[in-house]
Design a protein around this nucleic acid. Structure first.
Lengths: 249, 249
DNA sequence: CGTACGTTTGACGTCCTTCAAGTTGGGTGG
DNA sequence: CCACCCAACTTGAAGGACGTCAAACGTACG
């Protein structure tokens, strides 16, 4: 049972990262612009003109780039509470696609409404800027991940990052979380083939670093996983109070 | 002769990307805060607290991430006119390092001075946001580059991107430009070894796609290079009037 | 209950790495 | 002006991580 559109949305606040004075207004707007999307459908296609700001309320999505010859690279995983096209005011065209991994619930807030909020103070602009900064930071880490680490380390790193991000928004209990990504998705995210991902996952299992079946991931030994991955969470720029989660600090 | 601190700074305007109403003020500030740095020195180290906004006036630098065991990944190349720590207001700690490739001339503008400018209008905030968005876009493209392309395509792509960025700021003539990166740097930027970079460069030369010696790069057949690299410049978000440069549109 | 999708396995090939040894060339000092 | 030096570049041989191809197996869902 992956994140159905309603099951997990109770446990966290998708608006928590917005400036305090805009939260209520934003939530009200969101309620008027709710949308849903089936798994494996595209939210955004490369070349689209941004026309609204979308906030993911429930489910997983991914940013990906597709080369002309079909090779696909997932470059970011979007989780509940993430903005998905916050570049409305600063880009003419979107340079990548966004695809739903699970069933998705999101709010699609028209540009004009955001514009109004922005005129009331620069906090929102800073929030979007900060969002963009964090995405850039994660993208840089992914470049390093794919460029420098072995398959084994690469997968370990992806598990660390995603698990910690989930934990930070309250979507992980004890040491386990949902895991809707297929081995194909993992391959596209790590620059490997599905076959090699499969063999490497088996190795991670054999070493007692992950348990993974039935769309669910557990991390029996987070400290060692983190060490294997050479994972350091600084680049996620998580709020201080979430830094202590599990062995991840 | 790479970009010495003064040689090439005449030909372009480092402040061109700033909002019109702030350009003059910015330039004045910059003149009061000029700095230089020797090649191969670090401008910023991972973990630093951002304390000023730096604008590169002349020379090349790079953002890079270093794993605990020494492996290094260059994740972005910084050229004249680029901001180097525009994250002052949105990050507690910097999550990567910035190193000078050539001798560097830059302006280091204290945070407080920027803060003053920002209170005069939201244009500057949007500019920084847009900057961050473009860096994120480039970082995503690099992830795809390292994750999906072969060594041959990867290097071709890096040449396309960097050449076009240089051309867009007037630092490329006919079809050639400075090229201060060593084969070691290229290796760190592409996730390859220096040995394999060397062999792959020879192949690119043999195919008539690049000429590279004495810190200078020429692209005899940009259209074919672009095709080999599957390069599409959308993600650079260059102003429309630069899109036509050479065969790159 | 069948079908489609995801996962697993095996054999084999290759792109890229590793290691180790030259060679070239720009810069510096005698 | 030549000798020297060091970094950058080049070359070869051998090995390994990961890719490709093809088939079989498991499992969720209509």
């Amino acid at each position: 049972m992956h994140g159905s559109a309603t099951s997990s949305s109770r446990s966290f606040d998708a608006f928590a990262r917005l400036p305090r004075q805009h939260r209520a207004a934003f939530e009200k707007l969101a309620r008027r612009h709710l949308r849903e999307l089936a798994p494996r459908r595209d939210l955004t296609r490369e070349g689209d003109r941004p026309s609204a700001i979308r906030l993911i309320l429930d489910g997983w999505a991914c940013r990906y780039k597709q080369l002309p010859d079909g090779r696909r690279q997932i470059v970011h995983i979007l989780l509940p509470g993430d903005f998905c096209d916050a570049c409305h005011f600063v880009a003419e065209r979107i340079d990548h696609s966004v695809g739903a991994i699970t069933r998705l619930a999101y709010a699609e807030i028209p540009a004009a409404e955001i514009e109004t909020l922005i005129t009331q103070g620069s906090e929102l602009l800073r929030t979007f800027w900060r969002n963009e900064m964090i995405e850039a930071a994660i993208a840089r880490e992914w470049t390093a991940n794919v460029g420098q680490r072995t398959a084994y380390e690469r997968l370990a790193h992806l598990f660390c990052e995603t698990f910690l991000r989930l934990a930070a928004i309250g979507l992980a209990e004890d040491a386990s979380c949902e895991w809707p990504l297929t081995q194909n998705d993992l391959a596209d995210a790590t620059g490997l083939t599905a076959v090699h991902v499969n063999r490497t996952l088996q190795e991670l299992r054999r070493e007692g670093l992950i348990e993974l079946r039935g769309r669910r991931l557990a991390l029996p030994d987070p400290a060692r996983l983190r060490q294997v991955a050479e994972f350091s969470p600084l680049y996620l720029h998580l709020p201080a109070e979430t830094q202590h989660l599990l062995a991840f600090r």
